[in-house]
Design a protein around this nucleic acid. Structure first.
Lengths: 151, 151
DNA sequence: AGCCTTGTCTAGAATTATTCCAAATACGTT
DNA sequence: AACGTATTTGGAATAATTCTAGACAAGGCT
């Protein structure tokens, strides 16, 4: 989902961002957002549901989906699609790509080099305007590589 | 899906590639492969099914999925995942990224610049081995940009 | 040719992730 | 408190894909 408006996370709080979009910061939205911020792995909607439910037993999965969509639309959260699997969610708003380890499944954030553009390596036709990118690599993470080597 | 083995498309025919994986080139696999090669857009499995069925009315959707998986595993076809939508398939084996137009939905292939590496723009930790990448941009394609401008 | 093993295809059921829907609830304002 | 709107909820519905079991086909071997 494309954010409704760009967000400057250095100056706006989550509340302000949500209010800016004409929406409210409800308990559920805060709980979902907190669940993403606390463990900064890349949980699926069901993972988030499980986490949030321990604090807020009445919340429904539909609400978790709603909240994740809302937070994404406000630009507070990014969605990561790994191959054909369930969507994963990530509160890291800085420019980054994702690396997916094919051994252990972990997802690692790879920051964009400060002097680079994400699309620098590809030939773009004239007049192509890029508004978003989703860049994913797969392979073997350092930890798994080490485990392999020590066998 | 990760290819079973790297493939050199300049020297091997599709048959040879499939045989190399210990599999057969059946009528169905050929028909699915041809459907991808003829119209080099980025069809979904159902699109491919529709096309193939006009030539081979008895083919089942499950078979189309099987064939697409097999062709992908052999390295003859690549899978493109655009956001949460259905998987799309692409017989372009050269290194490229995908651009998805948010107005018209078209998918455009963007070749990798000859002097660049796909991951060049991102900071990689030590000992990270990358075996595959899926790079997607979204925005407005040249044609839609022109239509917008002329309004 | 006949038989065997294995690979492949098919239809339909099952699964998974997600979205939709209608009713209930909560919020913010007057 | 009353009102209008936003949000949440549970369950049903949908979409894409995968699974399963049986039928079919191909190639090797006797």
């Amino acid at each position: 989902m494309k954010p409704l408006a760009p967000r400057d996370s250095t100056t706006l709080s989550p509340e302000e961002t949500i209010h800016g979009a004409g929406l409210r910061m409800t308990d559920q939205r805060r709980a979902v957002y907190d669940a993403l911020m606390v463990e900064r792995d890349h949980p699926t909607a069901v993972d988030v549901f499980t986490r949030v439910r321990s604090r807020m037993p009445g919340i429904s999965l539909a609400t978790v989906y709603n909240c994740l969509d809302t937070l994404t639309a406000c630009g507070l959260v990014k969605t990561v699609q790994i191959e054909r699997g369930p969507a994963r969610f990530c509160p890291n708003l800085s420019e980054h790509a994702h690396f997916h380890c094919e051994k252990c499944g972990t997802v690692i954030d790879l920051p964009l080099r400060s002097d680079q553009q994400p699309h620098g390596a590809w030939e773009l036709p004239e007049n192509l305007s890029i508004t978003a990118h989703e860049v994913a690599f797969r392979g073997v993470c350092p930890r798994c590589a080490e485990n392999e080597a020590s066998k």
